[in-house]
């Protein structure tokens, strides 16, 4: 694999992360991060939809009339999301119930529109596929960090298994119920941005 292709794949994970740098896809991301499991499923679903819709739009890029491209993109994405939803409903019913409307909201996830517009419309299918996977991984990474922080501090467990030993609770440790509430997801992401931008000074805003 050439180095430019490697860049396409690696860049979105930290330097051009879709969530904390480009501000995309925050909409449906935060609501699913109270536990690790739904966050992981959501991340994988978004990565799959992103990679395949990038490929399809990239294959069609010379035939789509410019004026109606948004509607074409929405239809392609919506069809892929329906497939993902049916698969989850069949094989992971419990997680499907937890994610509820947020699977449908992958359609309006800004990462999809952003990558389709900015990348797939002007690049070859294989590059677009790599770009989709890279951005999906960047998105999943942020989701997992937030979910791990919230589930560990809020419920004392990871993926549903208790990880904080019972002796801690006997010694007076308590789960922080606040971490489960929706606003804490925003504050955790705020802290991730803080750390990320302290390390990578180029990203700081004036």
């Amino acid at each position: 694999m050439s180095s430019s292709r490697k860049q396409i794949l690696i860049n979105p994970i930290s330097k051009n992360n879709p969530v904390v740098v480009l501000m995309l896809g925050i909409c449906s991301a935060l609501a699913v991060t109270a536990q690790v499991k739904p966050a992981l499923v959501m991340g994988v679903s978004v990565t799959a939809v992103l990679a395949f819709s990038n490929v399809i739009i990239s294959l069609l890029r010379n035939t789509i009339p410019n004026r109606i491209r948004i509607i074409v993109q929405l239809v392609v994405v919506a069809a892929l999301v329906i497939i993902v939803e049916q698969i989850l409903k069949a094989y992971a019913y419990e997680v499907w119930g937890q994610l509820s409307v947020f699977i449908g909201l992958i359609i309006t996830n800004c990462i999809l529109m952003g990558r389709l517009e900015a990348f797939a419309l002007g690049n070859t299918p294989f590059d677009s596929f790599l770009d989709g996977i890279g951005n999906g991984l960047g998105y999943t990474a942020i989701l997992l960090i937030v979910a791990i922080a919230r589930e560990l501090l809020g419920s004392g467990s990871l993926m549903g298994y208790a990880v904080i030993p019972q002796s801690f609770y006997e010694g007076g440790y308590m789960n922080n119920g606040l971490m489960i509430l929706p606003p804490m997801a925003l504050i955790v992401v705020g802290c991730i941005i803080w750390v990320h931008r302290s390390i990578d000074k180029d990203l700081q805003e004036e």
């Binding site: 904390v20 925003l186 705020g190 941005i193 803080w194 750390v195 990320h196 302290s198 805003e205 004036e206």
Partner: peptide, 13 residues
């Protein structure tokens, strides 16, 4: 490092 996006997240929270 918190300017712009970061502080907006925390304020929204």
């Amino acid at each position: 490092p918190l300017r712009g996006l970061g502080i907006s997240f925390i304020v929204t929270g």
